[in-house]
Design a protein around this nucleic acid. Structure first.
Length: 286
DNA sequence: TGCAGTGTTGCTTC
DNA sequence: CGAAGCAACACTGC
């Protein structure tokens, strides 16, 4: 599910577990806990208080007491749910209700019981999501290898130009590379480039100053608008209340192969780029 | 029925 | 060094 707007939406929803304490953790896929092993994870996270919940790129970070931080990356289909359902002695009884009903239950692979009785659950159809428990200090250092946050003031046009210029890789790949710019993925790179009228296969080094300005001009507005609409729902993505994101109404090219470009009527094309799909209008994106 | 495609990342290979 | 391919997994849709 997640690119910056979806993760931002999730982080906002998660604020309601601020100051809560982890009292119990359950998983049916210990493999999703990458650091440390599950047993140690369980031992260390117990009784830690959630002091701050924030986002860096597509990563969700729960800053905990005693100098620990829990990092969750939702990858393709992960999403958090908060509920007040009960824990039975023998088995967990996750959501009886909810946007996707029983379907959701089946995909919950990690659950935390909080000190006020609420459950914090991670649902993840494809099981690509990861959770890691770090010492906050080393996590901060780790995260510093990510590119700048595109919505921060410091992400100026000059900064953007510096990142793109002289890079021979395709502009869409530059936008999606988390080490260059953090938080933009397949959907929003397609959407930004359509608005800027730039072909996704254009190499960064070959873009003119004007073209760079056109791209830059749309990065923040597209992301901000998507945040306002709580992101884009593709298949299983839901916000923390189980609601779908509404940005899909404003999607112009992503997954719209063979539909007409709303600007010029040409059929939208899909073309492979390194195992992913790029969607674009072959007429207005040059 | 089978296979290509799906929001991401990270490893291996050339 | 870069780029490409593929694997992690489960499901949908043509």
């Amino acid at each position: 599910m997640p690119e910056l707007p979806e993760v931002e939406t999730t982080v906002k929803g998660l604020q309601k577990v601020l100051n809560r304490i982890f009292v119990y953790v359950w998983t049916d896929s210990p493999k999703l806990i990458k650091k440390p092993g599950f047993n140690q994870f369980e031992k260390e996270i117990k009784n830690k208080k959630i002091k701050r919940i924030w986002r860096r790129g597509e990563n969700i970070i729960f800053e905990l007491s005693d100098g620990y931080s829990l990092l969750v990356h939702q990858k393709l289909t992960g999403h958090f749910l908060i509920g007040n359902w009960e824990l039975k002695t023998e088995s967990w009884e996750p959501l009886k209700t909810g946007a996707l009903g029983e379907r959701v239950n089946h995909y919950i692979h990690l659950m935390f019981r909080l000190d006020n009785g609420l459950m914090l659950a991670l649902s993840d159809l494809r099981k690509f999501a990861k959770a890691e428990l770090w010492k906050t200090e080393s996590l901060v250092e780790e995260l510093s290898s990510l590119g700048p946050e595109p919505l921060e003031k410091e992400f100026t046009f000059n900064k953007f130009k510096e990142i793109v210029k002289n890079r021979k890789i395709k502009i869409k790949q530059i936008l999606m590379d988390q080490k260059l710019i953090a938080g933009i993925g397949n959907i929003y790179s397609d959407e930004i480039l359509w608005r800027a009228k730039i072909h996704p296969f254009e190499s960064g080094a070959e873009l003119s100053e004007k073209e760079l300005r056109d791209i830059y001009k749309y990065i923040k507005p597209v992301l901000n608008q998507a945040i306002k609409l709580k992101g884009t729902s593709v298949s299983d993505y839901r916000d923390i209340k189980g609601e779908e994101g509404q940005f899909k109404k404003l999607i112009k090219v992503y997954q719209k192969e063979n539909e007409k470009c709303s600007r010029c009527g040409t059929k939208i094309k899909r073309k492979k780029m390194g195992g992913r799909s790029a969607h674009f209008c072959p007429t207005c994106q040059k």
